[in-house]
Design a protein around this nucleic acid. Structure first.
Lengths: 135, 135
DNA sequence: TCGGATCGCGTAACATTATTACACATTTAT
DNA sequence: ATAAATGTGTAATAATGTTACGCGATCCGA
């Protein structure tokens, strides 16, 4: 849970985090860039640099299977453990959750193997309750 | 484990699967393309089409966090369930395993949520026993 | 056995995602 | 005050993935 404080955000980091928070869902780096052109952003690197830091601070997660980024759902987020994501392939809804049992099972494997874990990606693809119901 | 037979592979599928099997580790689509130029491959699409099918048949896995592909480690593979991957960031070693407990825990979550699961990605990043020992 | 439907294949062009290289500015610690 | 570290801006380029189009082979029903 590493509830460590993160540094205060720089201007660009605040802008990127703001656009992700406002989006209510995942955005690609280039989508963020487009949103922030009015705020003076001109190049992808400005976005990627801010995202790197935000991910490092635990304020933003990267969705590997989407090549996109999403604000952490912990509202007053100050860092936390591994998260999992369920991604609806119909409506795009992304649900963040913390599957403690699964995480512990994976950790047990790493202990047995002598694997030093630094980062865990868990992403579920499928159809959310609403879309599954509609069929 | 859905031990269903897959269709016999086409020429391109065999070539792509062969290059992945021979590699002993993950390859990007473009790395495969380069390996197969001598066999007549000219364009990325030839690789991606074959990979799509091979993934569908369960013979190949996609590593989302690497944008790469790896042959399934089940030697005489004829399809199986969800796999997890531990990726060493020092030496590039990728270990495939089947974390049944973790998978069941995730499935339990999907049942509670009414989420219809179609595909599960579990990828661990870190340092393998050997590289961790070396420090 | 003819004809359409499906599937695989080849090629070109293009779209999307991410990084490298370089220069300058700002902040931080001494 | 100054050196080091961090953040910023810009341009160019690399890496990854997709769309569009046409052709040939195979499968299958009429």
């Amino acid at each position: 849970m590493t509830a460590e404080a993160h540094p205060t955000l720089t201007k660009n980091q605040k802008l990127v985090f703001g656009s992700l928070s406002g989006a209510g869902g995942p955005l690609t780096a280039y989508a963020i860039l487009d949103l922030l052109r009015d705020s003076g952003f001109r190049a992808p690197l400005q976005v990627y640099r801010a995202l790197d830091k935000l991910v490092e601070y635990g304020l933003v997660h990267r969705l590997e299977s989407l090549n996109a980024f999403v604000a952490c759902s912990h509202k007053g987020c100050s860092g936390h453990g591994t998260a999992a994501f369920a991604i609806c392939e119909k409506c795009g809804l992304v649900s963040e959750f913390t599957p403690d049992k699964a995480i512990e099972a994976l950790r047990a494997w790493t202990r047995d193997e002598g694997f030093h874990l630094s980062r865990t990606t868990i992403e579920l693809r499928g159809t959310c309750r609403t879309c599954a119901g509609v069929s």
